[in-house]
Design a protein around this nucleic acid. Sequence first.
DNA 1: CAGGAAGTGATAGTCTCTATCATATGAGAG
DNA 2: CTCTCATATGATAGAGACTATCACTTCCTG
Lengths: 185, 185
Amino acid sequence: MRRVQAAALDLFEARGYDAVTIEDIARAAEVSAPTVYRNFGSKERIVLWDEYDPSLLDDVAARLATAPPLAAVRDALEAALDRIYADDRDRILRRTRLLMRHPALRAASAGDQTGFRDALAAVLRGRRAVPDELDAAVLAAAVVGALAVAVEHWERQDGKVALGTILRRAFARLEAPAAPRRRGR
Amino acid sequence: MRRVQAAALDLFEARGYDAVTIEDIARAAEVSAPTVYRNFGSKERIVLWDEYDPSLLDDVAARLATAPPLAAVRDALEAALDRIYADDRDRILRRTRLLMRHPALRAASAGDQTGFRDALAAVLRGRRAVPDELDAAVLAAAVVGALAVAVEHWERQDGKVALGTILRRAFARLEAPAAPRRRGR
DNA sequence: CAGGAAGTGATAGTCTCTATCATATGAGAG
DNA sequence: CTCTCATATGATAGAGACTATCACTTCCTG
């Protein structure tokens, strides 16, 4: 599967997402087209595959016992980031770059974020950290939005500024949304 | 175009989104299939068409002169809502219902929200209300997320609670994200 | 009335994605 | 070693979304 994704990323970067067919990818990865679909389900999923870490929500739930909601999510995200940053940084950067340049991929990614938002809201409510349904959903949406914005900001600078740093700045803004001014960057 | 959308909504509700082909819609609306594509561009757009109001961003920009960012966006949204609520409430409810039940539509809608988020961030920055790029993007993402969550909450209750009320509650949560408790609902 | 712009329908074709079937590969039971 | 079953793969056929092109109509303008 990694071989298929790697071959697909190469082709997409070389020729553009729309100009590459599933047949091309299958041929480059030395598998058949139906196999690609069995593994990934759709063309977009080849790029989006592996985007999320299922243990992240467990970590959030654990941290909710001692920390306020926003801090719990922020710290869990930073910890997850540290874990994968060393190994997968370049691959994530490549995928994010593709993602931001092709509307079909952006839409699919945004759909994934909605799913993650719902899962996060369920954790916030389940742990009684934010009992009200609407409140939990609003917080989860804000958090997921901040994460997405941070990743896009990171990509726009070619990954030169550590993603953890940007994420902290984004969360700081979330925690004090009404205060437009902060110290100089 | 309204005739095509109305016919499509009827068919989607009766048979389910996936079971209806463009040919079916074209036949029901008494046009040809290529015409449907020329007008809407894609199957999802038939449902999503007319979702946004271009003058909304101008209104936000105007309000930024006198109000803080969150209040400006909130008031502009409520005003826009009041304007369309009387006429289009039922149609929006039907479309939202379809939207939440079919992953392809959810993803497309989420992609639109990303576009709206970027446009809103540009307005916040352009008016010097939130000069920093990341700050503006975080705020815009939080706002768009809150709006989406409010609309979904509204649909989940079959539109029985006024959308404006839900939106105000969502924004109240955004403005004080660190305070988990509020007065009883 | 002539000519041009814009919208429509018809047709053909590409590509994504699904379903089905046959085949191969590998693990465990006898 | 062989039989059996489960799983993965490939090949094929097909539906349907979407694009491109062409011819035709309509309507607007000079």
